Amino acid sequence: MPPPPPSFGRTRKRAAHALDAALDDTELLAARAALAQGRWQAARSLLVHTGDDWDRRGHRAVVLGQERHSAAWARDWLLAEPASAEAALLLALALVERALRGAERPDLAREACREAAGRAPTDPTPWLGLLILECSVGAEEESLRLFGEVRSRYADHHHAHHLMVARLAERGSCAGRDPLHEVYDFADWAAERAPADSPLAVLPVVAHAERYRVLAAAGHEPPDPVASGHWSGRRARQVMKAAFDWWLEWEQEGHPRRLVDLNFLAHAKVCEGRGAEAAALFHRIGEHATPAPWSYPHHDPYPAFRAARAAALGTV
């Protein structure tokens, strides 16, 4: 008999090092370590060589901006290279991160993002910075407008779609379950219009998890997602099967944020009670847990991830 499903809130002890936003990007890890020591040249080289690989550029710029002293080093970089679009981008993302922590005025972060956008008109990354900020502290209408700015530069932007799904899932938080909620329509639309090999195929699973987060926080779902019926309905099963089948056919080993998708998909398979399928995903994930969705609705994510992984691997 397989072991019982994990309790997602079983322990509060966290191995914080395992929740690294850099994921498995070794070049990014090296550049961030150098930046922490004030050596911004590695970040410069990384961003310049990333070029117009927009999903990768966005991932790298956001993570570099999260380094605690990025803003100071970006300003030093700008003194050395006043016309640098990459330096302006790093400063913008660093100020966004500081604004999210309450250490910077949001209007100054917005101004820096607009400056970076002016230096690189085709780059969606400064607009991604604005979208990250507005999804946290701004109005929904402005978030939708900024999402349009990102899409006009790169229609399949992975991070931007995840942000909008999380934001749209919060509509009608007090109304309870709604199988026709608009976040599902948005995710289905994005997945259907994307190329066949696009990781946006997993977006309906992300929408389902984000909606659970909102419903559980409002008391409409139990705090243990495994105990919830949220993943047992016909529509949920169809969404999970379609996304898992896509992964089997198109596994995107090179996508910079693929581990985000794999964590959402593994979480869904655990909640669905399909341990063998979850185990296959955990093998690909390794130790690269992501806070979402393992923290949903209010759990310590790394212990939740470890408990779920141990239970899934025990079924095979």
Rank of each mutant, 00 (worst) to 15 (best):
M1C: 02
M1G: 03
P6Y: 04
S7D: 15
S7C: 13
S7R: 15
K13H: 15
A16P: 01
L19E: 05
A22L: 00
D24P: 00
L29W: 14
R32H: 01
A34Q: 10
L35V: 11
Q37R: 15
G38T: 03
A42H: 03
A43C: 04
A43K: 01
S45R: 10
S45C: 06
H49G: 07
T50P: 00
R56K: 07
R57M: 11
H59V: 09
V62P: 00
L64R: 00
Q66M: 06
R75L: 10
W77D: 02
L78R: 07
L79H: 11
A85F: 02
E86S: 02
E86M: 01
L89K: 08
L91M: 06
L93E: 09
L95H: 02
R98N: 13
R98K: 14
A99S: 04
E104R: 07
L108R: 14
A109D: 06
R110T: 13
R114D: 12
R114W: 14
R119L: 12
R119K: 11
T122R: 14
P124F: 02
T125C: 05
P126D: 02
L130Q: 03
S136E: 14
V137Q: 12
V137P: 03
G138P: 06
A139T: 11
E140L: 04
E140Y: 05
E141T: 13
R145I: 02
L146P: 04
F147T: 01
R153Q: 07
D156N: 15
H158M: 11
H162M: 11
M164A: 09
L168H: 00
E170Q: 13
R171G: 12
G176P: 07
D178T: 01
E182A: 14
Y184Q: 04
F186V: 07
A194Q: 07
P199N: 11
L203T: 01
L203V: 05
H208A: 10
H208E: 08
E210I: 05
R213N: 06
R213S: 05
H220Y: 05
P223K: 07
P223G: 10
G229W: 05
G229H: 06
H230C: 02
G233V: 12
A236E: 05
M240D: 09
K241M: 12
K241D: 15
D245G: 03
W246E: 02
E251M: 13
H255R: 06
V260M: 07
D261C: 12
L262V: 15
A268I: 05
G273S: 07
A276W: 14
A279W: 08
A279T: 11
G286Q: 09
S295P: 03
F305S: 01
R306T: 09
A310V: 13
L313G: 03
